[in-house]
């Protein structure tokens, strides 16, 4: 059995770990609230943009539209954007995204496609570097340091659209976690380019779409709207991701705190038993020593 001093040190170290995890939980909870508010605030824009695109897309159709809808006519080169957090200690948050992305990459490659990767967040790069290092064309970090700004999403979108237009890839998909609750996040893959049109009938109730007048014209508006839409989708994804990250961390740290509590209880029990055993042993020694005289 371990001696008393070791046990005491052990208990102390678990206690300080518990202090850290419970502090991290508090911080994550506060950040989660902020991230959720940001996601909430960004929703009206995304919703209205979707509505506009739906009504426009219904008129233009997918055949003759701009390249961002119609695609480049091929699907040989795939760009995979993997969005994770910069930091770990948030349960399976990062790994699940990376695993989903990896599965997709394997799938695409066995179908004979070329894959390029753009990582957003340090963990995505760290985890993919070993197996897919040569395919990573760009890595971004420090996106969700405080609160995600639209400008960062816009930068990524510009980068992607530029790459698409210069023929570097044909299809672009983003992997991120959709926030459901602090306990559950859903790994989601969303195709950014060519844009998937929402079903117009569903969006507008099927009645409004023919009534609009367009200035300058449908194509002109779509040409301006689509790049914007890519940025908006990335922005939404990043916000969802940020909220998910903090939610996952909160849950992970909560169970870590609880585990540490259990461990402290167990160790304290062992410590007390050992202490009693030591006292008993000493007493026996004294008594038997006295009797021997």
């Amino acid at each position: 059995m371990a001696n008393l001093k070791d046990l005491k040190i052990r208990i102390k170290s678990v206690k300080s770990t518990q202090k850290i995890t419970s502090a991290m939980k508090m911080v994550a909870a506060a950040k989660l609230r902020r991230a959720q508010e940001a996601a909430e605030a960004a929703r009206p824009y995304a919703l209205r943009m979707e509505r506009m695109i739906a009504s426009l897309g219904a008129k233009v159709g997918s055949a003759g539209g701009p390249k961002l809808i119609a695609g480049s006519g091929k699907d040989d080169v795939h760009m995979i954007v993997v969005a994770t957090a910069d930091r770990g200690l948030c349960g399976g948050f990062n790994s699940t995204i990376v695993r989903a992305a990896r599965r997709r990459i394997t799938e695409l490659e066995s179908a004979g496609k070329t894959v390029k990767i753009m990582t957003v967040g340090r963990k995505a790069r760290d985890q993919l570097r070993r197996t897919h290092g040569t395919k990573i064309v760009k890595s971004l970090e420090n996106i969700a340091r405080t609160v995600v700004g639209f400008e960062q999403a816009d930068n990524i979108a510009r980068e992607l659209i530029h790459g698409f237009e210069s023929g570097e890839f044909d299809v672009c998909t983003i992997f991120f976690n959709r926030f459901k609750s602090a306990m559950t996040q859903i790994v989601t893959s969303q195709q950014l380019i060519p844009a998937k049109l929402p079903d117009a009938e569903e969006e507008t109730g099927g009645e409004l779409k023919a009534l609009y007048e367009y200035e300058p014209d449908e194509e002109g508006i779509l040409a301006a709207l689509l790049p914007r839409n890519v940025a908006t989708q990335i922005y939404t994804a990043l916000l969802e991701n940020a909220a998910s990250e903090h939610g996952a961390r909160m849950t992970a740290m909560d169970s870590a705190t609880r585990n540490a509590g259990d461990m402290i209880d167990r160790l304290t029990l062992v410590y007390n038993r050992t202490r009693q055993a030591v006292i008993t042993k000493e007493l026996i020694e004294i008594i038997s020593g006295a009797e021997a005289l």
């Binding site: 605030a41 960004a42 009206p44 824009y45 700004g149 639209f150 999403a153 940025a231 908006t232």
Partner: peptide
Amino acid sequence: FELVSPERL
């Protein structure tokens, strides 16, 4: 009238 920016209403 609604004015919406990407970040908020």
